[in-house]
């Protein structure tokens, strides 16, 4: 099974360790992983800001880079959701490309979804001693259908206890450029999320999207919480610490 890893622009820039964790997990599941070197961004920032032309150009680029792979896997519900739920809209008036795009969409997965439903990863390499709580990122949950998959994988880990928080499915306020354009509202939503994380008493917040991670971790630290770890689910499952 030849899997193209779509690292995502945020992971590339901010936290490459997530990309390597994803790589490790995919290999542990027996996949042959390729990382197209010209990849950049899925086009979501442009798409959500109304710049359809640039989103389309980037979608076409992703298509060309990943079309030859059996699967496209991204450690992000947001980018996987962008491809699966929105790429077809970008090519709705171009039947030939639309067919190719649709075939790509059908083979595009968020990492944990892929590990559970396609690669059927049995042995999770990581180990984590402590309690974690899981934040469902909006696009992962509502566009890519990610809910039980990360929990199923975390449940396989010895020493890890999952304690669900209140409002796990409520938006953390990130929303891409929204986080800067409407900083005050965004901060309030992040604050609500921090309250729920704190109330859960978990040692670590685990989630599957780096955008939400930066937002929630940024707010936790500003509030003076230096203790609660904020970890990408790939890092936890792979057993690689975020600061390697």
């Amino acid at each position: 099974m030849r899997v193209g890893l779509f690292v995502t622009c945020l992971v590339d820039l901010f936290r490459p360790s997530i990309g390597f964790a994803a790589l490790k997990l995919l290999e542990a599941a027996g996949c042959e992983v390729v990382v197209p070197q010209t990849q950049t961004c899925c086009g979501q920032p442009g798409y959500n800001s109304g710049d359809r032309a640039s989103a389309q150009a980037l979608a076409r680029k992703v298509l060309n880079e990943f079309e030859a792979c059996d699967y496209l896997v991204a450690p992000s519900g947001s980018c996987a959701g962008m491809i699966r739920a929105h790429y077809p809209d970008l090519f709705s008036d171009q039947p030939e490309e639309l067919e190719r795009i649709k075939r790509l969409c059908g083979r595009t997965y968020e990492l944990t979804d892929f590990l559970v439903n396609v690669a059927r990863l049995e042995q999770v390499p990581g180990r984590f001693d402590g309690t974690v709580t899981y934040h469902d990122s909006c696009s992962g949950l509502r566009e890519a259908g990610v809910k039980s998959q990360p929990r199923q994988l975390l449940a396989k880990m010895q020493g890890l206890k999952l304690k669900e928080m209140e409002e796990a499915e409520v938006c953390c306020g990130f929303g891409g450029t929204f986080a800067v354009k409407f900083g005050e509202i965004s901060t309030r939503l992040a604050d609500n999320k921090c309250n729920n994380v704190a109330a859960s008493g978990a040692d670590a917040l685990v989630l599957g999207d780096l955008g939400c991670m930066l937002n929630i971790e940024g707010r936790l630290r500003r509030r003076g919480d230096m203790k609660t770890q904020v970890l990408h689910v790939a890092e936890v499952l792979a057993g690689t610490d975020g600061n390697d």
């Binding site: 590339d12 901010f14 986080a179 354009k181 500003r222």
Partner: peptide
């Protein structure tokens, strides 16, 4: 952690920005 981001005041007024690890995935890879 970045406490103040030029042009990103909307973010850093209420949140820190966790800093990148320093190298990009593509160069490490």
């Amino acid at each position: 952690r970045i406490h103040h981001l030029p042009l990103g005041g909307g973010w850093t007024a209420g949140r820190d920005m966790p800093a990148p690890q320093g190298k990009t995935f593509r160069e490490l890879y």
